[in-house]
């Protein structure tokens, strides 16, 4: 703390700490926290974008209505293109996932906010929900035939057991990569911005760190959307596997 260099306190991960909203130290499962606040704001933003914005039901849409329609059309075509027409039954679930993730990501870009999607405790349940829903749906639709997903019928017979083992492993790795990818991307971007911001405390490096923050921020805005898109389209791909397990 004596020298300027040594005085820099790096706490890039502190922004991800859960804090109770109304004081106190203990966090029970029901305690309203900063995460609660920002998830509630996310729900409100979704309400404003998709419900209040479309309230006028205009034939020629206003700006906010356009955003709602754009989001709707974006996810709708994605579901239809990847899973086919019968996948549209599950469109509301996928739309819920997409809207929550994309809004939470963008809200996380607001300085001093809390990004819910940087928490493994958030992304792992999201991924596990998709994993279990898709697996159960697959068995419900095709019974034992769902296991054909792991039996690559085009491959030579000798290779098929080996491929089946690989397929099973990759199937169970899905929720892991699905959740870590989202949380990792969001967390890394925010942590790097925090590190740049800490370097801003040194007058000499401050301009560089400012440029760095601006550049990282721009990239993180892109990442926020792309990661929401990736999460959603992977969900669609998994859903397609459940609906059409044959290779």
């Amino acid at each position: 703390m004596e020298e300027t260099e040594g005085g820099l306190q790096f706490h890039p991960m502190e922004q991800f700490t859960l804090k109770p909203l109304f004081g106190g130290d203990t966090i029970h499962w029901y305690t309203p926290t900063n995460a609660t606040l920002w998830m509630a704001i996310a729900a409100l933003v979704i309400l404003f974008l998709l419900v209040i914005g479309t309230a006028r039901r205009a034939i020629v849409p206003s700006r906010s209505q356009s955003i709602g329609e754009l989001a709707y059309g974006f996810v709708h075509t994605m579901v239809e293109d990847v899973t086919g027409r019968e996948g549209l039954r599950y469109f509301p679930y996928i739309m819920t996932l997409f809207m929550f993730i994309v809004v939470a990501n963008f809200l996380g870009m607001i300085p001093t906010s809390f990004s819910a999607t940087s928490q493994f405790a958030v992304t792992i349940p999201l991924a596990l929900m998709v994993f279990f829903a898709v697996t159960l749906l697959g068995f419900y639709k095709h019974g034992i035939g769902f296991l054909k997903l792991f039996w690559v019928s085009q491959a030579p017979l000798i290779l098929r057991p080996v491929l089946a083992v690989i397929e099973v492993i990759s199937y169970f790795v899905r929720p892991v990569s699905h959740s870590i990818r989202l949380a990792g991307n969001i967390m890394a971007g925010h942590a790097v911005i925090e590190v740049f911001a800490t370097f801003g405390g040194v007058a000499l490096i401050a301009p560089v760190s400012l440029i760095g923050i601006v550049a990282m921020f721009g990239m993180d805005v892109l990442v926020s959307f792309v990661q929401a898109y990736v999460f959603t389209i992977l969900t669609c791909v998994y859903l397609k596997d459940a609906l059409h397990p044959g290779h």
């Binding site: 926290t33 995460a35 998830m39 729900a43 809207m99 929550f100 349940p125 999201l126």
Partner: peptide, 13 residues
């Protein structure tokens, strides 16, 4: 805590 509030938010959304 996070999982509980996540589920609440998801149900609301």
């Amino acid at each position: 805590n996070l999982i509980f509030w996540l589920l609440v938010t998801l149900v609301i959304v």
